[in-house]
Simulated assay, not measured.
Amino acid sequence: MQKKLNIGLLIVIFILLAVPFVVPNSFYLDLAIRMAINAMIVLGLNLLIGFAGQISLGHAGFLGIGAYASAVLPTHFGWHPLLAMLGGCVITGILAALVARPIFKLKGHYLAMATLGLGIIINITLRNEAQWTGGPDGMPVPPMSLFGTEIYSDKTWYWIVAALLVIAVWASQNLIDSPFGRALRALHGSEVASQVVGVNVVRYKVSIFVLSAVFASLMGSITAHYIGFVSPNFADFFHSIELVTMVVVGGMASVFGSLVGAVLLTALPQALTSFEGWETVVFGAILMGFMIFLPKGIVPTLAAKFGKGE
């Protein structure tokens, strides 16, 4: 298992190293950066949904907290961007820990509705606190600064997110193979059986929810600094659904499925622009096709078909 996973990680590293030398222009480099950012968000979300079996329909709210922390704290309070990014992760982690215990007393569609409500509350707060957030119009984000140098170059940003993606994949693999990861898989299989063998169900649910939320917050900050602007759309319901769709299409409980789902669904809208007004219809039809013919997601279904476990 570990050998196969390491080979997969090497393939990811090779692809990331090759991308800047094969993309024809800055548009495709920008697309690659967005793919990598989405892949890291989906990795964290897949740990929650795919491995622990806990649904979240409001995850974009945590993304929005991180993004706005990197905008509000430097703009209004003079914080360094790195400190603001850390502050966003801490705020997100505390919020996630506070709401996780009452939320995870629920199951099934009740849990889904509770997480959806949390995301909507965050989105409404960002829209209404206009004196701090700029309201529905959003606000600019100060540039990221490292060692006294401000980062503007797309190539520099690419290498930053590529390095973070490699770390995220490696960390996810090791987490899944750890006792913590085995407890998550047991939790997904049966909460009652997990309790019988000594797994603290509540603690593991809260821990993975907080970890996944902090993943999203960190990537929200990275996205905000890269784009240079934030708006409440970062935290809206449709963005949450898009992230969940990436998890499902790529493959739940699959590290590399997270990458495939993020890459595919980030690139697909760009590939469908030639349909001029029918993009959404074609996009929906493609997603239906994936779910009909690849019901477990792309990577797990193909792995099962060719007789190879991930």
Rank of each mutant, 00 (worst) to 15 (best):
L164K: 03
K155W: 14
T156S: 06
E150L: 14
A162I: 12
N174V: 08
S145F: 10
Q173I: 14
I151Q: 02
L165H: 03
S178Y: 07
T149V: 15
L146W: 10
D154S: 08
Y158T: 07
A171L: 06
L146H: 11
Y158W: 03
L165I: 04
V169C: 03
G148I: 13
D154R: 11
L175N: 05
W157H: 11
L165Q: 05
A163W: 01
Q173L: 15
L175I: 11
A168S: 01
A171E: 05
W159S: 05
F147L: 09
V161S: 02
Y158H: 06
I160Y: 14
L165T: 05
S172W: 09
G148L: 13
V166C: 14
L164M: 06
L165D: 02
D177G: 10
L164Q: 02
Y158R: 08
T149Y: 14
V166L: 07
T156Q: 10
I151H: 06
D154Q: 08
A163M: 04
S178Q: 02
G148F: 13
L164T: 02
L165C: 02
V169T: 06
L165M: 09
G148C: 10
A171D: 00
G148E: 13
W157Y: 14
V166D: 11
D177R: 10
S172V: 10
L165S: 05
A168Q: 00
L146P: 11
D154F: 08
I151N: 05
D154C: 05
E150P: 12
T156D: 08
S145H: 11
Q173G: 14
W170N: 08
L146R: 01
G148M: 15
F147G: 07
Y152F: 15
S178H: 07
Q173W: 07
I160G: 13
I176F: 02
E150T: 15
I176V: 09
T149S: 13
A168W: 01
A171K: 01
I160H: 14
A171P: 00
Y152C: 13
K155M: 15
D177P: 00
I151L: 08
Y158V: 10
Q173N: 15
A163E: 02
T156H: 02
I176T: 06
S172Q: 08
S153L: 09
L175H: 03
I167Y: 00
I160W: 11
A171Q: 01
F147P: 07
D154N: 12
S145N: 15
T156I: 14
S145K: 12
K155D: 12
V161L: 04
V169Y: 03
S172R: 12
D154P: 05
A163V: 03
V169P: 03
V169R: 00
A163Q: 01
L164R: 02
I160E: 13
E150M: 15
S153W: 11
A171S: 06
A168D: 01
I167N: 01
S178M: 04
N174C: 09
W159Q: 04
L175A: 04
V169D: 00
